[in-house]
Amino acid sequence: MSKHWYMLTVTGEDKPGIVARITRTLFDRGMHLGEASMLRLGGNFTIMMMVAGEMDAQALEEALSQVAAELGLSLHIDPMQGGLHRHVPPNFIVRVSGADKAGIVAKVTGVLAQDGFNILGLDSDVAGSEDKPVYIMQIAGIASVPLETLEASLSGLRSEGIDVNVSPVEMLVG
């Protein structure tokens, strides 16, 4: 079978059964699932999922449209390049926390980008309370510069009240 991958994006108000209904529909149409990220963000449920099979993008969208309508979800399908088994393990993790203020993500990631840091995964959350929000973020990624270089680059952000630290990820294979 020629595997043609699509990136399926699904978002909508969170409720039980979204994953079950979407994946059941895909399974019934003979579609295969690849890597996926599914997450509740701000009371919404979000799915980014690799889907492959014989159907083209239009047929796929039609197949899912009924479930999407019933559950109040919006969906989006893009043909994608790439495929499975392209994992790159991270060698650094950057942890950030601080009073939530404009530009915190742009500043941290801007500094990392200048060092050639490639972000593989980023989790961020706003914690604290309405009147005292705190931004907390973990960034896993890969960079070829040494730890000291990243530390030096990020240290400038501390004077701006951003608590940021970087630690190496020593992968263990056993």
Binding site: H85, H87, P89, P90, V169, E170, M171, L172, V173, G174
Partner: peptide, 13 residues
């Protein structure tokens, strides 16, 4: 928390 892989679990960490 640390990152692990395994000879018996290829292509996953």
């Amino acid at each position: 928390v640390g990152r692990e892989g395994c000879l018996s679990v290829p292509d996953y960490t």
